[in-house]
Nucleic acid binder design. Structure first.
Length: 219
DNA sequence: GACCAGATTGTCT
DNA sequence: GACAATCTGGTCA
């Protein structure tokens, strides 16, 4: 990864076409898998950042108590009901932003959580936003990712199928590893195999199926 | 390297 | 008032 590579990624991202709304109308689990290898691009006023998506989680409307919309529509989760291609950004633990891409038709609340990306371009800007962290820690987690890419509340209800924040086609990983989702309680569908990772990627938030080690303690 | 606990605030019951 | 799709720094082995 050198400066020439970064310039090529920037040129590629500037010329790239966002994935269309139809992409997000596919079954959510399929979208979550097909997003792996795709490029997340944010052409912000501060500069351009590009990353390859290496980890996602699917949240479903049926039989998934971990989904924010499992108990119906609320003020917070309303974007999940607004149709394919809508960006759903929410605050977690009062400090961190998480970015979801809404799938399924309007009125059906399903989404894919972006958990980790491999930085490809705009690394200096990401470092600036993330506080000079090592490259591998720039976007290896849902909240790290949003911070590195400058995504926040102002992007909630945005459109992922148009600039400046969009996803474009990339190279699919050689293999995909499925696992259970991270951070969910036992009664929230923690055992559902809805986490998808690019196999053997060093850019993941955690190794596949290592989700039980950092559970919150009971209070 | 592995584990633990604190930070911090919007949302929901 | 409790909890949450997390992160980070500190402690200990």
């Amino acid at each position: 990864m050198d400066g020439d590579d970064e310039r090529e990624w920037i040129a590629h991202a500037r010329a790239a076409m966002p994935l269309p709304t139809e992409f997000y109308l596919q079954p959510t689990v399929q979208v979550a898998q097909e997003l792996l290898g795709c490029l997340l691009v944010h052409d912000s006023p501060d500069g351009l950042t590009v990353g390859r998506i290496v980890e996602t989680e699917a949240y479903l409307s049926e039989g998934d108590p971990g989904c924010h919309a499992a108990r119906g529509r609320t003020v917070r989760n309303a974007p999940m009901f607004e149709g394919p291609g809508v960006i759903y950004v929410y605050l977690i633990y009062g400090m961190h932003w998480c970015m979801n891409l809404v799938t399924a038709a309007e009125g059906t609340a399903e989404a894919v959580l972006l958990r980790a990306v491999q930085p490809l371009a705009g690394m200096e800007l990401m470092r600036h936003r993330r506080g000079q962290r090592p490259l591998k820690e720039l976007a290896s987690g849902p909240a790290k990712l949003t911070q590195a890419f400058g995504v926040g509340a102002e992007h909630n209800r945005g459109d992922i199928t148009s600039r400046p924040l969009f996803v474009t086609q990339g190279d699919p990983p050689a293999a995909i590893v499925k696992g259970t989702r991270i951070g969910l309680g036992e009664s929230s569908g923690a055992d559902l195999p809805l986490r998808f990772c690019a196999a053997s990627s060093p850019w993941l938030s955690r190794p596949p199926n290592a989700n039980t080690t950092m559970q919150r303690k009971k209070r």
